[in-house]
Write a protein that binds this DNA or RNA. Sequence first.
DNA 1: TCCTTATGATACCTTATGGTATCTCTTTAT
DNA 2: ATAAAGAGATACCATAAGGTATCATAAGGA
Lengths: 119, 119
Amino acid sequence: MNASAQSHAAQGAFRALADPTRRDIVMFLSEQDMTIGEVVDRFDITRAAIKKHLIVLEDGGLISVHPIGRERVNRLEPLGFKSVNGWLNHFNHFWDDRMSKLATAVEKENLKKQHEKKK
Amino acid sequence: MNASAQSHAAQGAFRALADPTRRDIVMFLSEQDMTIGEVVDRFDITRAAIKKHLIVLEDGGLISVHPIGRERVNRLEPLGFKSVNGWLNHFNHFWDDRMSKLATAVEKENLKKQHEKKK
DNA sequence: TCCTTATGATACCTTATGGTATCTCTTTAT
DNA sequence: ATAAAGAGATACCATAAGGTATCATAAGGA
């Protein structure tokens, strides 16, 4: 999968992570799975607002919802995060390449200087 | 730096990456540095719109701008990406932990079954 | 010098987004 | 059986966000 396709696939995830409240929710969910009510208790906004955030997170593939009785447990989903990681990874390679090229250039420069010194 | 502080620091970067056009711009810039005009040539939207995107990217620390004569070259900035990577890394650890715990649990379950078989 | 080119800035429009308030629907417990 | 608790849906509001059109500015080149 190329980076452009990955970007398309990760759109929902990137969108979801853009909001600080949603990133906080994700942080809480990394400590333990939670029902909506439990998430709401940790914020000062209404249940409806939290619910919307959870829908965005679910659309982005970052969480999944599991009904248990009348409750619905929200759980982190690794796959959604992987799509983001995958896209970012393209740039990690990019930095590596840039650094190694820079290192090579510096090395050549040093060799050149040493050569000139000998003259 | 804890994950919450990282989240705060990375807010601009996450915000910038939420838009598909900006991610595309970033992809182009990973191939080569570009002036605004060169970026504009690769899209079907106005210069003003591109300019706004570049400002958001700069605010997010994902690019830097370097004036050369009357032109302004836009260049990717690794540090901005690192802030995003840093935040995401917290969850990579999380997956690793979860997987290892799962593996341990499965292993224990297998040992238990073997033990019961012997009976 | 003067015209062209690369860029910046502002005003304005439309839609998306984050939020509240309110009502309904289920499920559990008394 | 009925009240309370957990969750969902919808209407509505203010602001942010992405886009265009237009005007202003500065630097190169003929």
